[in-house]
Amino acid sequence: MLVFEYQCKLKFLKSINHKTIAEKINYFLDSVLAKDQEFLQYHENKGYKYYVTDAPWPIEKDGIYKEGKVYTLRIRTVKQELAEFFSEKLYAHTSKELLGIGGKLRIIPKKHIEELYSITPIVVKTDEGYWRGNMTVPEFEKIIKINLIKKYKQFMGQNISEDILLYDVMKFNNRVPIKVSYKNINLLGDKLSFRISNEQLSQELAYFALGVGLGCNNARGLGFVNYKYL
């Protein structure tokens, strides 16, 4: 299992507020998937998508992506055919606001991961909405871990224990919940850091998380994590 990263160069055809950028990126990617019958079915499938995106960078100080400027969007996946599809088809692909002008496809090296930290908020789904006030921190941690393990088991086709110690320390990097606009509602998420366990399977899961994200709605730009090697 390898994690592929496509660094897509995007030219902005219109200025866009960072608060609405996720929906513009989602449409841009969804519309290119829709051009291929196989990937259209893949997109419409309600199962795990096995890819995750961050927000275009650099982010402007005033929060407005500027018309005419070029930014970079990172798309990561553990599906090689999907990475190659994006790297080929996003070139010259356009929407009303965005134009793909190229990019770089690479494999993220497999090295010992000391820490994972979220670039975009991690969101977990509960029947009560945002988790704080409805569950304990250990319960919240368990949801994140079990969600990742379920993705791994389905993708790899093998069963592993859900009792694994994925990390030794988890830290919140935000004081208040972070609002994320999604389908005309606001989801609430958190930015977190994890000091990853040295166990081999823990390291494998941490590497896998780089390509699929943590929490929910990863293909919608949530739960994108970056890494620090030992």
Rank of each mutant, 00 (worst) to 15 (best):
Q80P: 04
S95M: 06
L73M: 06
E44M: 10
V70Q: 07
E84Q: 11
T77R: 07
W57P: 02
E88S: 14
Y50V: 03
T53F: 02
T53K: 12
Y50H: 12
R74V: 08
N45P: 06
T53P: 14
T77L: 10
D54V: 10
W57F: 10
A92Y: 05
K79G: 08
L90K: 05
E88F: 04
T53A: 11
D62Y: 05
Y91C: 01
K69L: 08
K61E: 13
S95H: 04
P58I: 14
F85Y: 15
L90S: 03
K46H: 11
D62P: 01
L73F: 06
F85R: 15
R76N: 11
K89P: 01
K89D: 05
I75D: 03
E84I: 02
Y65T: 00
K49D: 13
A92G: 01
R76V: 10
E67G: 01
E88P: 00
H93E: 02
V52T: 15
E44W: 03
T72H: 02
Q80Y: 06
K89C: 06
E44A: 12
I64F: 00
K96Y: 02
R76F: 08
Y71Q: 11
Y51Q: 12
F86N: 07
K61H: 02
D54A: 10
A83Q: 11
E67C: 07
L90D: 01
E67Q: 14
K69F: 03
K66N: 09
E81A: 10
K79L: 15
G63S: 00
K49H: 12
Y51R: 03
T72K: 14
G63A: 04
K96T: 07
K89M: 13
T77F: 14
K49P: 09
V52M: 12
N45G: 14
Y42P: 15
Y71N: 11
I75P: 04
V78Q: 03
K49C: 10
E44V: 02
E81C: 05
Q41A: 03
V52P: 11
E88C: 01
K69D: 03
T94N: 14
R76I: 15
S95I: 02
P56H: 03
K66Q: 13
D54I: 06
K69Y: 12
K89W: 01
T77W: 09
Y42H: 08
R74L: 13
Y48M: 07
K69G: 02
H43Q: 15
Y50G: 05
S95F: 00
K61F: 08
K69C: 09
K49M: 08
S95P: 06
G68V: 12
H93V: 05
Q41L: 08
E67H: 06
F85A: 11
G47R: 04
H93A: 05
Y91M: 01
V78D: 14
F86Q: 02
K61N: 13
Y51M: 07
P56N: 08
T53G: 15
P58E: 03
K49S: 12
T77S: 15
H93S: 01
K66E: 15
P56S: 13
E44Q: 13
T94F: 13
L90W: 01
V78K: 03
K49N: 09
H93C: 11
S95Y: 05
A83H: 06
G68L: 12
P58Q: 04
K49E: 09
L90I: 04
P58A: 07
A55G: 00
Y51C: 12
D54R: 07
Y65P: 00
G63Y: 00
E44S: 07
K69N: 12
P58F: 03
R74M: 12
K89L: 04
Y71H: 08
E81H: 10
